[in-house]
Design a protein around this nucleic acid. Structure first.
Lengths: 203, 203
DNA sequence: CCAGATGTTGAACACGCGGTCAATGGAGGG
DNA sequence: CCCTCCATTGACCGCGTGTTCAACATCTGG
């Protein structure tokens, strides 16, 4: 007894949503076509019918991950801040907050990051996202550089941006392997203290 | 036609060595008992004979990874340095250098990190290693804190150590997804500039 | 009201996995 | 010299996977 029909788009959305649920619950390792279909209440044959293959499903899922969570986006409330230092710290706080509030999203992101290590298509997407992310820091980073030209004589904007991103990615990675042991509050306080003197000479 | 016999220890070593080769070439995802046996030139039945199960093999492989590369160890040549700042920077340089010199090892470490996300035994090992790693920074980090008590009033040693580790882990993670695009030299210069003023008031 | 188009189902396929174990044969002690 | 160990082999098992596709249900336009 086949189920009722549905439009192309609704079905794809339904499947993708189920895939997201399964992926956050079981990880990408545990994401199988049959599990997704079961989660969506459909026959497993439907998944490769609407998404040509599992790879395409994964690519679509990653796009959804980028879009759905505001993950790694620099929101307007941050861009509205005038001081580059304040923006930097606000962004840092935002990302630190995500470590506890959007743990599932971070986990899934980390899963894809790992997958990107071996899958060229995924890797390309992750690189693009990483680049986008780094470039969001460009304005503030350049102002920091200009604030103390002597100290940062040999420092390029990209290099400093990479350091800032390392703060965030590194903390995410630590929180993923040890969610209880990694103290976000302590981390934020320490990072603030480290950075707090940076922008002051430019104020 | 069975092959020649060998002692318990030599066989285990041979298998483990083959497993290491396969793991660095194909990733943990592509590490199968049959591939390891083929790499070692043995029948696949021998692997679960000497290592009770694949899980045990993986655990042994992780121990070997910890031991073989001097990865994440604070060597004597670093401990010999007197200034805490110098030690910190030396360690940072050492780890940055590893990103290019021991890329395979870093990749494998990252693979295990990801696996630890879902496998409790692996996770426990990774946490222990992370803790060991963080604690290696304790002496220098505490001196940094003491150098400027007002600035770091609310900062705990653990918090600051977590920040420093984030530097390193974050850069490793970036290098893993984009080995060519991540400029280690730029990163080091930027990090040095950021940290260079930290210890000076204590000197 | 009836085709033709199309979404849907679930059996089937080939594959590779981890694991098991009877059979084999080489090595060493009695 | 033979006989007992035991490392070694490779066929075999059960399982789960991604993918295919004939059969079928449902919807739609004439």
């Amino acid at each position: 007894m086949p189920g009722s029909k549905a439009g192309e788009l609704e079905r794809k959305e339904q499947i993708l949503s189920a895939a997201f649920t399964v992926a956050t619950r079981e990880g990408l390792e545990g994401l199988t076509i049959r599990r997704v279909a079961t989660e969506a209440g459909l026959s497993h044959g439907l998944v490769p019918f609407h998404f040509e293959s599992k790879d395409r499903l994964l690519a679509a899922l990653l796009d959804r991950l980028f879009a759905s969570t505001g993950a790694f986006e620099v929101g307007p409330e941050i861009l509205r801040l005038e001081s580059p230092l304040e923006r930097l710290l606000a962004l840092l706080r935002q990302e630190m907050a995500r470590l506890t509030s959007d743990r599932a999203g971070i986990q899934l992101f980390f899963d894809f990051w790992h997958m990107g290590t071996r899958h060229p298509r995924i890797r390309a997407k992750m690189r693009a996202e990483l680049k986008r992310y780094r470039e969001a820091f460009s304005p503030m980073v350049e102002q920091v550089l200009q604030a103390d030209p002597r100290r940062f004589a040999d420092v390029s904007p990209d290099g400093l941006a990479a350091v800032v991103v390392s703060f965030i990615k590194g903390s995410a990675v630590q929180s993923v392997i040890d969610p209880e042991g990694f103290d976000v509050a302590q981390f934020t306080v320490a990072a603030n203290a480290l950075l707090s003197e940076l922008g002051e000479s430019s104020a």
